[in-house]
Every structure is written in C-alpha cells, then in structure tokens.
C-alpha cells in the first residue's frame, strides 16, 4: 500500500507543487487541515512561505495536532518557513513564538562574507536570496542520500542556526543551515518541490522512509 502523507493546508501559498511531488514519488498525498486525517497519516509535510509571524498565526489551530504527530514520532518534513517555524523563535517576528520543536532562533542571512576574495567576486549580495544554491552534506542521513553537492532552489532572507542538528549547509556570504534533522523531524530551507530532479529525489527519500 502506498504511504499516506498529509500536507498541512493552513491557507498559505503554493501547496499544490508539494502535493504533486509527493504523488510523483509514490505516496498518496492530500492537502488537509483536518486533525483526524493528519493524525492518521504515515507522514506529515509542513510547507510555508512568506512571513514567519503570519505563518505562525495561520498555523495556530494546527499546533496541537503538530505536537501530537511529532510526539508519536511520525516522519515530519518542514519546508522553507515550514522549517523556520519548527524553531523557538525568529528575528523576523520577535514577539511571536515558534513551534519550539527545535532549539535556537531564526536570524537574518548575514551576507557580509568573511572571505575577502569571495566578497570581491560577488559584490553586494541581494536579499532575499532567490536562486539555486549548492548544499554540502555534514552528516549522513536517509533524507540526503545521493544529494551531496546537489543544487536546490532557495527563496528566503532568514536562516536557522548551524548547530548539532544541522545536516547540510549552503553558503550565501556566510554558511547557513540548509537541512536540519532531529529524530523523526527533518526540514529544508530550500524548496525540494521546486528543485527539479534532485528535489524530487529528496522527496522520494522522505517517502521511501515512511
């Protein structure tokens, strides 16, 4: 039987691509905000685009079911702001609490390079970072199998910290955390559903593990 993935639909942006990518990877996938459906899923995807504070506000009523599926150790994939929301807080909306599943704070991309050669070749880096960028795997993980040095599509101005949970990094001025994993929870700062073949491979890795 195909694994069933609930894509959390809380009224934010483009969810259809995530659903299509999961279907293509061999899962059943449904956009839903129904706690019953979500708690019965084999895996859960939390997408997110735009403003941290706005997303947290929109996701408010799904907080209990998110806590429940994470406690039940269901595979859980956060994408972009869906990754950022897993942390304790964000500098983008300092008064708003995150889901507090991961320690640490989301901060603005620091585009001032330490490397003067790099700085000269790249002049002032634009924000948001809107481009494909290469990821470097730091710790082997099922999600990133076959994806070291792969190119992924990023659209963001804020980033999670590089800590012990960070399993892949990328660089924009300075290195930042691109993929995080802790227990059954994984999350990507980039959009795998918009990252062509390699992005589909990552989603496929998530589905295979369900």
């Amino acid at each position: 039987m195909k694994p069933f993935v609930a894509v959390l639909d809380y009224g934010i942006g483009n969810l259809r691509s995530a659903q299509k990518a999961l279907l293509l990877s061999g899962a059943e996938a449904e956009l839903t905000d129904d706690p019953k459906v979500i708690s019965q899923a084999d895996g859960v995807v939390l997408p997110g685009v735009g403003h941290f504070g706005k997303c947290m506000k929109a996701v408010e009523k799904l907080k209990p079911v998110i806590a429940k599926v994470i406690e039940a150790q269901k595979p859980f994939l956060g994408i972009c702001v869906g990754m950022q929301m897993l942390y304790k807080s964000s500098k983008e909306a300092p008064d708003v609490s995150g889901l507090n599943i991961l320690e640490g704070e989301i901060s603005l991309l620091d585009t001032k390079s330490d490397d003067t050669k790099k700085e000269m070749s790249s002049r002032a880096l634009k924000l948001p970072q809107i481009q494909w960028n290469q990821i470097t795997v730091r710790a082997s993980h099922y999600l990133l199998e076959g994806l070291d040095k792969s190119w992924m599509y990023f659209v963001h101005s804020y980033v999670p910290p590089i800590d012990e949970n960070c399993i892949a990094v990328s660089s924009y001025g300075k290195e930042f955390c691109a993929v995080v994993a802790k227990g059954s929870v994984v999350a990507t700062q980039f959009h795998p559903e918009k990252s062509g073949e390699d992005g589909l491979k990552l989603i496929g890795n998530f589905v295979k593990n369900l």
């Binding site: 934010i12 942006g13 483009n14 685009v49 735009g50 403003h51 706005k54 948001p128 809107i130 659209v155 963001h156």
Partner: peptide, 8 residues
C-alpha cells in the same frame, strides 16, 4: 506581499 510574502 502582505498576503503571500514578498518572495512571490
């Protein structure tokens, strides 16, 4: 921008 984010 305020509804869906500047990125779009």
């Amino acid at each position: 921008a305020s509804e869906f984010g500047s990125q779009c």
